[in-house]
Design a protein around this nucleic acid. Structure first.
Lengths: 227, 227
DNA sequence: CGAGCGATTGAAAAGACTCAACCACCGTGG
DNA sequence: CCACGGTGGTTGAGTCTTTTCAATCGCTCG
């Protein structure tokens, strides 16, 4: 594994407030600090692979990751893009089955790791965490359900509009920064089709691009497509 | 509401063994019996509606239900078909948001109901239930993830093959019994397309039909499409 | 028996994919 | 410093899939 260790404390982790771990007090934070490790992953480096056995959870401190599955013919499908503060691998730990998705760093990432046993003992100590996980799971299930309906009924055009809105939130103030291929694999279409639609969206003034960077300039109009 | 009460006990409920409530002892079962109510729903009767506030959970004792969302232009998309033993509405209770899907009886159904407060006090009493719910949620999340990948990448033909396999398991020994329109709304395609594919599947000897009933006759070949 | 709904078929049009070629940028090594 | 090769991005043309619209069929339930 080609990753470097870093030694940062959860206490001053500026993404903690948005994460599952937001509800911990000082003591518990110290505990986490003592059991977690933190590594740096380079762009395109794998964090975990579909089919392998989960041994802990990951907390994304810095950077973006893509979570993807390999469909038929090995075609990659990006299930989601994870951002700072996201905790990955919790469900896999509960379902007690191998990963059904892979995770790869889209840019330089700083990722903390907590082993399975430690994570479960944290749960026993803090019932708020259990509730947080439940809430998180139901929220995610909720989102996926909507997503499936969208996927099933909408044209590629409308799905792309939806994807832009999602990604815009994930990237926050920064521009969306994905390869055309990744974008196509997120929307579920061919790269060429995606490119054609991108220029169409540009012509209509909905987005602005600069090499691979994309800015959403008209959220409302995009939203109208997904209604 | 046009539903009739029935007075059956969980103790001799023959689907309990497959449900979330399988892990209860006699005492707890008696408690549930005392707090639950049970009603009969006729075919095409709504059980709950998208947008309304969840006030409890439903346990499907007998019959099949469709769980669906309304997409753009009011087009129905069937998210799943619930069968005997399925418990519905747990996630909605946790996420504490209005239902994002509706539920309707596909045939005469017998459905038990447990109010929100009672359900949460059950959870407090039996931590195994919490675990069961977590496992259930992660399993479902797992399934939906796979489903999205399938949805995104596969042709209608292959999605239908996948749908037949799913439905075959849900219906068990009985034939799949859905209207062509419901089937189309489950697969995410137009009714006409679905009908054409059905006759194609029949020609290839993968399924057998009789009016609206469908038997899967060649699981292996269907499975090959979804690989 | 007749209305009406679900199922089916046909034909044409639209959407999306594939394949192939070409462009543009970037880093490397000579 | 420049030529080279490689990768990712873009465009065009043809083809296949899927949808749409329209018409017909067939059954069931008053």
């Amino acid at each position: 594994m080609d990753k470097k260790n870093c030694h940062a404390s959860c206490v001053d982790c500026d993404v903690r407030s948005q994460s599952l771990f937001s509800q911990f007090d000082g003591d518990q934070m110290a505990t986490i600090d003592s059991i977690k490790s933190c590594s740096t992953y380079k762009k395109n480096q794998s964090v975990f692979l579909e089919g392998s056995i989960p041994r802990g959870v990951f907390c994304l401190r810095k950077g973006k990751m893509k979570i993807y599955a390999l469909g038929a013919e090995g075609k990659e499908h990006i299930v989601r893009v994870a951002k700072e503060g996201d905790v990955l691998g919790v469900k896999a730990l509960f379902s007690n089955e191998p990963y059904i998705v892979s995770a790869m760093a889209l840019e330089e990432c700083s990722i903390c790791y907590i082993g399975k046993d430690e994570f479960f003992s944290m749960i026993d100590l803090n019932s708020a965490l259990t509730n947080g996980i439940m809430t998180e799971m139901s929220r995610e299930l909720h989102e996926k359900t909507k997503f499936i309906t969208n996927m099933a009924q909408k044209s590629v055009h409308d799905r792309l509009a939806f994807a832009f809105l999602l990604l815009d939130e994930i990237y926050g103030k920064e521009p969306i920064n994905l390869s055309r291929e990744d974008l196509a694999n997120f929307v579920g279409t061919a790269t060429e089709t995606l490119i054609r639609l991108i220029s169409q969206f540009k012509d209509e003034g909905l987005i602005r691009t600069e090499t691979r960077k994309i800015w959403v300039t008209d959220r409302d109009s995009l939203l109208a497509f997904t209604a």
